[in-house]
Amino acid sequence: MTDALLKVDNLVRHFDVSPPWLNRVIERRPKSVVKAVDGIGFEIGRGETFSLVGESGCGKSTVARLVVGLYNPTAGTLEFDGIDISSGAARARNRGAQRRMQMIFQDPYASLNPRWRVTDIVAEPIRFNKLVSGDAAIRVRVGELLEQVGLSAADGEKYPHEFSGGQRQRVSIARALAGSPEFLVCDEPTSALDVSVQAQILNLMKKLQRELGLTYLFISHDLAVVYHVSTKVGVMYLGRLVEWGETEVIFNAPRHPYTRMLLDAIPDLDMSGRARTPVAGEVPSPIDPPSGCAFHPRCPLATDRCRSEAPKPVSVGAAMVACHAVEENRLPEWHG
């Protein structure tokens, strides 16, 4: 792809979760490190929606926070529109790049300052980046933004607690749009919302993408939502991407056993009575991940090689897959 807005290469983020120094010395406990993100790379093209999907603890939210700079990477590079934003220092040099990306959070009850009026919340990026000057002009702009996300300009005078969850998420989106960004990182933006409200927010996000030409990095655990919104999907397991590529390819012809397992686990609304493969086991602790391919303890296709050697991603059709079974061509047919 030539026109990548965000390039992520070999991104690593470790968290030190060691006991305090004194305990380590006295109780002889070792240092321990959570490999939340352990070497992932992908590109997001302009106007695309790239989704990261996986179970809790797979590191998808950490990737989102690394991209917007809430964490600094332990290793690896992040490039936004050709600008290096891999470290805090690089970000500080390129404040312009930071303005062009914004984030939408999961919890609509925690993501708005309860003591601020909605007008002030939405106006903050405008004031900070000095995009519009003069209080009256700012108020007009905030009114426009609120209307753009389906609220009314008069709602600006209210406090967050006067809104429902869905409306708060709209305020959150309005604040994200206030800095006129090109790129939005959405961390589970609808998982705290009811289904009917989720539909409203997803539709709104699609509408905004069309109108403003936004690019999304979308984080979710809900495969159906991901299928609905994304152009490309990456499936994460224990800090790594196991399979990524075009949405249709991943969902219609999944290759990685983990992707297949996730797809199999989705409750079936059509009730076609398809036999579900019972899913075994749970996600292991990222402090002490299994050797070789991290998925091998739960994988029906695991061999000795899977237990000892981590698979490298290989290109299969329009997708990338990191699995020995795919490489060795011993993958069973997908029931589709």
Binding site: V68, F105, D107, A110, S111, G179
Partner: peptide, 22 residues
């Protein structure tokens, strides 16, 4: 640790502004 503080950090606000205003 609440998300509104993280949101302010993403906007680019300085620590001082976040501490005293948010």
């Amino acid at each position: 640790s609440k998300e509104y503080v993280q949101a302010a950090r993403v906007i680019g606000l300085s620590s001082r502004a976040i501490m005293f205003r948010h």
